[in-house]
Amino acid sequence: MSLGRSLLTFALVGTCLSSQASVVMTGNRVVYPADAKQVSVQLTNQDDFPNVMQAWLDSGDEQSTPQTARAPFMLTPPMFRMAAHSGQTLRLQFTGADLPKDKESVFWLNILQIPPVAKGSEASNQMIVMLRSRMKVFWRPAGLQGSPNEMNKTTTASVSGRKLSLTNNSGYYASIAHVVVTIANKPVKLGGEMIAPGATKAWPLVGTPMGDSVQMTWINDQGAYLSGALPLKH
C-alpha cells in the first residue's frame, strides 16, 4: 500500500524498452523524523541498460508533475542518469512548514523512469513508455500517541447496520492491509485502507458481523504485516 506504480505518459519518440518499473526503491515508505536534518532513499537500477530518472514530492496530487507539485521538501538530485545495475541515493530535506505536532503528515515521493531510445529507431515513430512510482513520505513529530507496531491498541471497531467502521485514535497513519469479520459463520475479508490520525473509515457489509471482535492486519514502518484483534462494538 505504501508504494504505487502507474503508467505516466507515452511519447512518439522511440521504442518501448520497458513495460515494468525496474528501478526500485528500498523500503515501502519513507519516515522523516521532524528533528532530522535530512533522510536518504536508496534506488537500484535492475536493468541491463541505463535509465534517466526524475524525482519530486507532492502533497497528494496523483497527477502532479515536477512543475506543479508542492511539498515542503528539497530533494537532490531531482534528475539524474542511472547506469545499468547501479545505485543512487536521493536526499530529502524538510524546508519548513506549519504542520501539526501531534500527528503525522503524509506526502508522496514520485520517481519517473525514462528508458533509453534504441539505436536506429529515432525515426520509427514508435513509443517509449515512461513509468512512475509513488512512495509515501511520513513527516513524523516526536512523542506521538500509539505505535506503528501496535495499531490494534489504538484502533477501535464498531458496527452499525451493515457497515463496519474503524477509528484510528493514534498519532500515526494506519496502513490497513485488510480486516476480517465473521458473517453467517464465515470469515469475510475486507480490503485495505489508509486511515489518517483521528479519522474513521467504513466498509459496507453483506450481513451483520458475528462475535465480539474483528481481526485487523496492518503494515508497519519496515513493511511487515502485523495482526491483532479489535473488540467490536455493536
Rank of each mutant, 00 (worst) to 15 (best):
V23L: 08
V24G: 01
M25G: 04
T26V: 14
G27H: 07
R29T: 11
V30F: 06
Y32R: 02
P33Q: 07
P33L: 06
A34I: 06
A34L: 09
D35E: 14
A36P: 09
A36D: 12
V41I: 15
L43N: 03
T44P: 01
T44K: 07
Q46L: 13
D47N: 12
D47H: 05
D47P: 03
F49D: 00
P50A: 10
N51K: 13
V52K: 11
M53F: 10
M53D: 07
W56P: 02
L57H: 04
D58L: 07
S59V: 01
S59R: 03
S59C: 10
D61P: 00
E62S: 14
Q63F: 10
Q63C: 03
S64K: 03
T65N: 04
P66D: 02
P66W: 05
Q67D: 14
Q67V: 13
Q67C: 00
Q67Y: 08
A69R: 05
P72E: 00
F73D: 01
M74W: 01
T76D: 05
P77W: 12
R81N: 14
R81D: 14
M82H: 05
A83R: 15
A84T: 08
A84D: 04
H85P: 01
H85Y: 08
H85V: 00
G87V: 04
Q88R: 15
Q88N: 11
Q88C: 12
T89P: 09
T89V: 15
L90P: 03
L90A: 06
L92T: 11
F94H: 00
F94R: 03
F94T: 03
T95R: 02
A97N: 00
A97S: 04
A97H: 01
D98F: 02
D102I: 03
K103A: 07
K103G: 06
K103E: 09
K103P: 03
S105V: 02
S105Y: 01
S105F: 01
S105P: 01
V106T: 06
F107A: 08
W108V: 03
L109I: 07
N110C: 12
I111P: 02
Q113A: 12
Q113P: 04
I114E: 10
I114H: 08
I114L: 13
V117K: 12
A118D: 12
K119R: 10
K119W: 07
K119M: 11
G120T: 07
G120A: 05
G120C: 05
S121D: 13
E122F: 10
A123V: 10
S124G: 09
S124V: 10
N125D: 12
N125L: 15
N125H: 14
Q126C: 11
Q126F: 11
M127Q: 14
I128M: 09
V129L: 15
V129G: 02
V129W: 08
M130Q: 12
M130H: 11
R132M: 15
R132Y: 09
S133T: 15
R134M: 13
V137L: 14
F138K: 10
F138T: 06
F138P: 05
W139R: 04
P141Y: 07
Q145W: 00
P148T: 11
N149L: 14
N149D: 15
N149P: 00
E150D: 15
M151Y: 03
K153M: 13
T154Y: 15
V159Y: 05
V159W: 06
V159F: 06
S160Y: 10
S160R: 15
G161L: 06
R162I: 00
K163A: 15
K163W: 00
K163C: 12
L164A: 09
L164V: 08
S165C: 08
L166H: 04
